[in-house]
Nucleic acid binder design. Structure first.
Length: 289
DNA sequence: CTAGGATCCTGTCAGC
DNA sequence: TGCTGACAGGATCCTA
């Protein structure tokens, strides 16, 4: 679920609540959700959060004891703050407004000012404690490609050439190629660029790679920019949660609706094992058509 | 090395 | 209503 913009929104939103704040207690309800289990988790007790960083879809919480918690939300992870003010971000679900902890709470970080709940329906997400000076050596972090804003079109083009027989969508989802894209932004980037997800990556032109990269930057930046206010209004008095996909998604989960560019009907298909949304008119398999 | 499929886990929804 | 299979905003592991 949470892709780069959502994790960035978590990073920005959580700061005001936990930066410079001390973790007074940790409770692990699901052993596999904290690498090393409950025993390992006790190492963060008494530590203060000094910084919140992000690499790709990984959130990094630096502590003043020389360690860093890497938090990966994977498909269904959420970080929910409950204190004087509330904050929730990650996979949208009713957990945002439920009483916590609940059956999907995997780890609870207790601060004097409130509680931070790591909820995760499918248990794919995790918290991993690393030495701060060895974060870059972590296998996941070390293998990550560049952030979209730091990558050049030439670099993306070269990576596509290296994976010349792979489907373009699969290449965009590969975190080693480019960091942060997931199923939503891969679809949105391809729509922006007018590229069919099943094109072989090696067949893309440099200009197409450039448009895809531009699409990734544009759609993600728009999401980050709207994320703050969206998140703040997520928990409404009436208990409803806003669907922030509606705000900016052009094709994702819009099958059956009209393409905002040409009016053709958006369709859903399966590519690289993932649900994929395209405009069949704007995104042709063959370059010229 | 690459490419593609299975797999981890829980919950929801469409279709009998 | 109850069952069944498909599927889900991710990444890794296994196989060819």
């Amino acid at each position: 679920m949470p892709e780069l913009p959502e994790v960035e929104t978590v990073r920005r939103g959580l700061g005001e609540f936990i930066l410079s704040k001390k973790i007074v207690r940790v409770k692990v309800d699901c052993e596999k959700s904290f690498v090393g289990g409950s025993e390992m988790a006790q190492a963060v007790k008494g530590a203060t959060v000094t910084d919140l960083r992000r690499r790709g879809k990984a959130l990094l919480a630096d502590l003043d004891n020389g360690t860093t918690m890497m938090i990966h939300l994977r498909m269904t992870g959420q970080l929910i703050w409950r204190g004087e003010k509330d904050f929730a971000a990650g996979h949208p679900s009713k957990n945002f407004t439920d009483a916590l902890p609940n059956a999907q709470t995997r780890v609870t970080f207790e601060f004097e000012e409130g509680k931070l709940f790591f909820n995760d329906q499918r248990k794919f997400g995790f918290v991993k404690l690393l030495a701060t000076d060895e974060v870059e050596k972590d296998s996941f972090i070390a293998s990550l490609g560049k952030e979209p804003w730091e990558m050049s079109a030439e670099e993306l083009y070269e990576k596509c050439q290296r994976h010349k027989n792979a489907l373009t969508k699969a290449v965009l989802l590969d975190q080693k190629v480019i960091a942060g894209l997931g199923n939503i932004y891969a679809d949105e980037s391809l729509f922006y660029a007018g590229v069919h997800p099943e094109r072989r990556a090696g067949d893309l032109s440099l200009e197409e790679a450039e448009r895809i990269l531009e699409g990734a930057r544009q759609t993600m930046q728009a999401s980050i920019d709207s994320g703050g206010s969206t998140m703040a209004t997520y928990i409404k008095p009436d208990g409803t949660t806003g669907n922030y996909l509606e705000k900016f998604a052009q094709v994702f989960r819009r099958e059956g609706q009209a393409c905002p560019r040409c009016g053709a009907e958006i369709i859903k298909m399966k590519v690289a094992g993932r649900g994929t949304h395209i405009c069949p008119e704007c995104q042709k398999r063959v370059g010229d058509d």
